[in-house]
Design a protein around this nucleic acid. Structure first.
Length: 572
DNA sequence: TGCGCGACTTAGAAACTTTCTG
DNA sequence: CAGAAAGTTTCTAAGTCGCGCA
């Protein structure tokens, strides 16, 4: 089948919720290269030991992680060692983790990586690698869906490795097994060529399910969950759903007064069930909490959301104030002290009364019940819509009337406009608790900037003194010059110019220092990609005469084509 | 009718690429 | 103009949610 000519303006085409496609063609998935044994021996009890290839592969996985924090965790080491032993014959001398020394392999891996890096710098090698990457992209990177060529998101099968769970994960360090074609199910249209599995292999299965959007799937050996190969974010499958998400959040704006009235009334409801439900929805709305489903402590890290909050996560203060302190998604800490509606405060206290720290606050509530209730208030409403709604409305408000500074005009510089947008974006990220770890070397970079600042300040002082000295007729000794061996100019004009340059540089340094430090733990990208309605940004850029590509990277521009046509006056 | 699980969205870290700066 | 920093993409873990099945 040949691709349809003409632009794929999927947002103008109808999309059936149930039947996702009528024809589907693609070339399957790309497997990682097989493991090649290197023969470098690890030490056991100080002696070099022979390892079968499977065990060597696992040992090498561990060795290549020796500079990460993972290997300092007992659980990671224990889980790794259990899997490592399983790959060794029963009569193998290795029995005790503490006698293992993986450093020879670590050194080998490090050296090999450096050599590879050096090799890749050579222009001819660079070119060859680029061409090979493009060739694979051509083969596996596209699917033909209902006649339109669409990009595939993740066509590479995940390589084996030691599981890197987030936070204190019970399974961290376990071996994530190599996926074989025999593990992979292909989903593809009827009457089109079925992708060939690698020679000597066969697929686990081939299905033709047009009610789903995945092209291939396999079972993850760590969690037992399915992993899927999907189309990219700019595809109709992903894009249409994303557009619907923002339209639903916008729909919530029409219902929000009614919904807030409802839960405010139910905060003093007759039944405990009602009060718990109302209090949870209040928190989800006010604090942008996730709904918080149940988790299995043997399978997953201990993290919570709203419904799964425990007594130990709340600390009651005076004046209706509560401190929330818990680990949320990805084990990111949510730490926030907030003053609540007195009724909500009273309810939370009531729910916690007489319970042990490890008990659930909302013991009569489930995510199912909460979402069922939301559906009775607005069609299709669920807890996560509140995050999208509140993120979007916050961005819009902060761009239109910022809470902590004066608004910007089209006459301001492009740099000022970008900083202004980022500040609004930062408010959203804080609301959603989108964090990142402090970038590597942040402290050194801050020190460096501070040193620069001190230097510029000192130089400015000296130049100013010199200028003064010249203006007053060069009486006495010239002021010190710590920044050059050559004597400083005596030209008033050039000295004044120098003062100006230094002052400008100093101002830039001040802004940079503040922004860098304030933003060191805040991730802006998550809200930009997933939460803030792109139409708000498009309209603002039009009003402020900011080229959209200054705000949205190439991939985001490609993800939101449906949002581009809104007028500058558009409102969420 | 509750609940497990399939399918899909959301998440930060790591890897890679581009831009800035001294 | 090289090395650092900033920006962007890739990777895959970790959530949400609705549906189908007992």
């Amino acid at each position: 089948m040949k691709p349809t000519q003409g632009a794929n303006k999927w947002w103008n085409r109808p999309f059936n919720k149930k039947i996702k496609w009528t024809t589907l063609e693609h070339n399957g998935v790309l497997f990682p290269p097989p493991y090649e044994p290197h023969g470098v021996k690890m030490l056991y009890d100080g002696q070099p030991v022979e390892l079968p290839p499977d065990a060597e592969e696992i040992a090498t996985m561990y060795a290549s992680m020796m500079e990460t924090d993972y290997v300092r965790k007992d659980r990671f080491n224990a889980n790794f060692f259990k899997c490592f032993l399983k790959a060794l014959p029963a009569d193998h001398p290795i029995k005790d983790f503490t006698k293992c020394d993986f450093r020879p392999i670590w050194e080998f891996v490090k050296k090999r990586a450096e050599e590879k890096k050096l090799e890749r710098k050579k222009p001819e090698v660079k070119k060859q690698l680029k061409e090979e990457k493009e060739r694979l992209q051509q083969v596996y990177g596209y699917a033909l869906v209902d006649g339109y060529l669409e990009k595939v998101g993740n066509y590479r099968v995940e390589p084996p490795g030691l599981f890197r769970g987030r936070g204190d994960h019970p399974k961290s360090g376990l071996l994530k097994k190599r996926i074989q074609p025999e593990d992979v199910v292909i989903n593809i249209g009827h009457d089109v060529p079925i992708p060939k599995p690698p020679p000597g292999h066969s697929w686990k299965g081939v299905v033709h399910d047009n009610t789903v959007t995945w092209l291939a799937c396999w079972q993850d050996s760590i969690s037992g969950h399915m992993k899927y190969v999907f189309l990219a974010a700019n595809s109709r499958f992903k894009g249409f759903a994303d557009m619907q998400k923002y339209k639903k959040a916008q729909e919530l704006k029409k219902y929000i007064d009614k919904i807030r009235k409802n839960y405010n009334e139910e905060l003093t409801g007759k039944t405990l069930t009602e009060r718990q439900r109302a209090t949870a929805i209040y928190l989800i709305d006010k604090l942008a909490l996730r709904v918080g489903g149940e988790k299995d402590p043997d399978e997953e890290a201990d993290t919570v959301g709203c419904c799964s909050l425990r007594v130990e996560h709340l600390e009651f203060k005076d004046n209706n104030t509560v401190t929330f302190d818990f680990l949320g998604k990805d084990s990111m800490r949510y730490y926030n002290t907030v003053t609540l509606d007195p009724r909500a405060y009273k309810n939370l206290k009531e729910f916690c009364k007489g319970k042990k720290p490890g008990e659930q606050v909302f013991d009569t509530l489930t995510t199912q019940k909460l979402n069922d209730h939301l559906k009775s208030l607005m069609p299709g409403l669920s807890a996560k819509v509140f995050r999208t709604y509140n993120a979007s409305i916050t961005l819009q408000n902060e761009l239109r009337n910022p809470s902590d500074q004066k608004t910007i005009t089209p006459q301001d510089t492009i740099n000022a406009k970008i900083l202004y947008y980022n500040r609004a974006n930062r408010m959203v990220a804080i609301l959603c608790n989108h964090q990142r770890s402090i970038p590597k070397g942040h402290e050194t970079q801050m020190e460096k900037l501070n040193q620069q600042k001190a230097n510029v300040e000192k130089e400015l002082e000296e130049v100013k003194a010199h200028l003064e000295w010249v203006k007053k007729g060069k009486k006495g000794k010239a002021p010190p010059n710590s920044f050059s061996d050559k004597p400083r100019t005596d030209s008033v004009e050039r000295l004044e110019k120098k003062v100006e340059t230094l002052e400008k540089r100093l101002e830039n340094l001040y802004t940079k220092l503040t922004l860098k430090d304030e933003g060191k733990t805040i991730a802006l990208s998550t809200s930009r990609i997933n939460y803030m309605d792109p139409r708000i940004t498009v309209a603002w850029c039009k009003r402020m005469e900011v080229p959209l590509e200054k705000i949205f990277a190439k991939s985001l521009l490609a993800k939101f084509p449906w949002a581009m046509e809104v007028p500058s006056t558009w409102e969420f």
